[in-house]
Design a protein around this nucleic acid. Structure first.
Length: 568
RNA sequence: GGCCCCAUCGUCUAGGUAGGUCUAGGACACCGGGUUUUCAACCCGGCAACAGGGGUUCGAAUCCCCUUGGGGCUACCA
């Protein structure tokens, strides 16, 4: 029986890296008909966010990753929140202490720091100096009386090399003495990750630990701890996946967002302003900002709720403010930040099926040329032996291509559900349309790359006539040039006298007019499009006009003619 | 600094464990052309890689070593 787990620490939304880890564990459990456990590693009192566990669960559910055991669903190995397992951890820590396999420490942060600096100066690995005689209970009392913090360290066997057998990397050797004694109980009484993880993996009978390469260095210590605690009982199999890196270098993380914002801000040292508005480019991701403008630094700092000094320090790359500060400033500046969290992708109009498919192919492949795969196919093909060793870069343009394919292959009814959820999340007026109308829109949007595309193209149908925003470029290009307005006026008159207002008669009229004037259909259709939508991008024009209706169409054309007509 | 991991087109990767069938395959991106009422989608074509150096071998993308480059870890975070 295969048992895997995903063990996030609840510090915020689920990000792509975490989602991929969860997915691989889930895929393997499903493939093998095993159990997938969700365990919340909330042992850090300082970092935990009260809502994070819920957010992570929501995101997993959106992706379709269901856990067999864990919060809200229960199971025989609970509780699944580590903060509720303190008795268990204490029991094992005391056992280790009694067996002289762990010992108390009373060091201050400064003392430890000094030791580390010394090791570095000597070009050696840091190794905690284990005392010859382990402190006893009365030493603990003494230390506490002096106001010193008390921690517990595990005595890592130092006389022989530690070997990790990894599914993707094979045998990895760590020389004797290379792994230092590490803390297993913090001074606040909570266990550390390296301890709780081992105990829980044992108690929950985890058979496969699939996690990021960042945990590789923890593994020898964890294995040694396992042996000290559980003797010869077989270790879980480890698979350390490659890391997903970003095009800006380093592992793809939440830090991408502040980085992107920093990149978007051009400092102008002469005056107290920053310049914003040039085209931003990330990997495959392009976002046209508002027209370039200068923004006072003081105002920007105010929006973010930080001091101008803090802003300056951020811009220079010295410090990074909290995420809400970054988000607030980005929104104020009209800068789109690269998606990192799963919800970011949801709000950008990606399908969960796209994310699952794409994430699965980051560091794994089925061995043939298949790429676009539904979940069941992914499950059937998944195999740990095909995990990739090298790090991979998160390519947003390929993700978009995947999304296009998945939108194409999703049945309309299903797509409607996704679209509804998306529209609701981004608070779009399009959500006011009934199912029949949205289904029609979906059909007209064949080839759309994201749900955001569908929203953008159909938005005009759900706005009040006075809410239409005219895009400057569109107005200049199609209305003010080539007799655009004159053509529009003719189209208006022809529409006004129509008894029937169907796609067919609208099409016939426009084609006829184009032929009369000896021009392409675009020359007559585009001015009309801009008049009713404000932009050059919308649903196909005949359907656009028909769906909007005669009355609103005429009203919008009149407004446009009045607004941009030269002689008015 | 120390320890560990990794290295095929711009990107994700196939091929590597059983060296020849690899003048290195696919996908995305890009470029050119077609289609077209916008944006997409779609069709046709093109560009493009075994990091460098040394071995082993009749023969190396594939095995070994070194160099270089990238990444991870180096917390009373997980």
């Amino acid at each position: 029986m295969i048992v895997t787990r995903f063990a996030p620490s609840p510090t915020g939304y689920l990000h792509v890296g975490g989602a991929r880890t969860a997915l691989f564990n889930w895929l393997w459990a499903r493939r093998m008909g095993g159990t997938f456990i969700l365990r919340i590693e909330d042992t850090d009192q300082k970092r935990n966010t009260p809502t994070a566990t819920q957010q992570v669960m929501d995101d997993l559910r959106w992706l379709g990753i269901q856990w067999d055991e864990g919060p809200e669903v229960g199971g025989p190995n609970g509780p699944y929140l580590q903060s509720q397992r303190m008795d268990i951890y204490n029991k094992y820590i005391n056992k280790l202490l009694d067996d002289k396999k762990a010992y108390y420490c009373f060091d201050t942060a400064e003392e430890l720091d000094a030791l580390r600096k010394e090791a570095e100066a000597q070009k050696k690995s840091f190794s905690y100096p284990r005392p010859k005689e382990f402190p006893n209970k009365s030493d603990v009392e003494k230390a506490k009386a002096q106001g010193r913090d008390v921690t517990v360290r595990f005595a890592v066997p130092q006389d022989e090399p530690l070997v990790v057998e990894d599914i993707v990397r094979g045998e990895i050797k760590f020389a004797a003495g290379e792994i230092s004694d590490f803390i297993i109980q913090k001074s606040d009484g909570f266990p550390t990750y390296n301890f709780a993880c081992v105990v829980d993996d044992y108690l929950m009978k985890i058979t496969h630990v699939i996690r990021g390469q960042e945990h590789l260095m923890n593994t020898p210590g964890q294995q040694a701890l396992w042996q000290a605690l559980f003797g010869d009982s077989p270790l879980p199999k480890y698979a350390h996946m490659s890391v997903t890196v970003s095009d800006t270098g380093g592992k793809l993380s939440k830090r991408e967002r502040p980085k992107a914002l920093r990149k978007a801000i051009k400092v102008r040292p002469d005056v107290e302003t920053v310049r914003i508005g040039e085209q931003l480019e990330f990997d495959g991701f392009r976002k046209e900002n508002k027209s370039p403008q200068d923004i006072e630094t003081s105002k920007l700092a105010e929006v973010g709720g930080i001091t101008p000094e803090q802003l300056d320090s951020f811009i220079k790359g010295k410090t990074t403010p909290d995420m809400p500060v970054i988000d607030a400033m980005a929104e104020y500046l009209g800068v789109a930040l690269p998606e990192i969290n799963i919800v970011d992708f949801f709000k950008s109009g990606y399908l969960p099926e796209t994310m699952v498919n794409f994430l699965a192919l980051l560091g794994w492949n089925p061995g043939d040329n298949r790429e676009i795969m539904p979940v069941n196919e992914l499950i059937d093909a998944f195999d740990l032996s095909r995990l990739t060793k090298a790090n991979s870069l998160f390519d947003r343009s390929k993700l978009l291509a995947f999304n296009t394919e998945h939108i194409k292959m999703t049945p309309p009814e299903k797509l409607l559900q996704h679209l509804r959820a998306y529209l609701k999340a981004v608070n779009s007026p399009v959500n006011s349309g009934d199912d029949e109308k949205l289904l029609k829109i979906i059909k007209l949007c064949e080839g759309a790359r994201s749900l955001a595309d569908i929203e953008r193209k159909s938005r005009f149908l759900f706005l009040d006539n006075n809410e239409i925003q005219y895009d400057n470029k569109a107005v200049k290009k199609v209305l003010l040039k080539n007799d655009g307005l004159a053509v529009l006026a003719i189209v208006r008159d022809k529409l006004a006298v129509m008894d029937e207002f169907t796609e067919q008669v609208i099409e016939d009229m426009l084609r006829c007019l184009a032929e009369e004037k000896q021009v392409g259909l675009g020359k007559v259709a585009q001015p009309l499009r801009v008049a009713i939508c404000g932009t050059t991008v919308s649903l196909p024009i005949f359907e656009s006009v028909q769906m909007l209706g005669k009355e609103d169409t005429l009203t919008r054309i009149d407004t446009t003619l009045k607004k941009f007509g030269a002689d008015n």
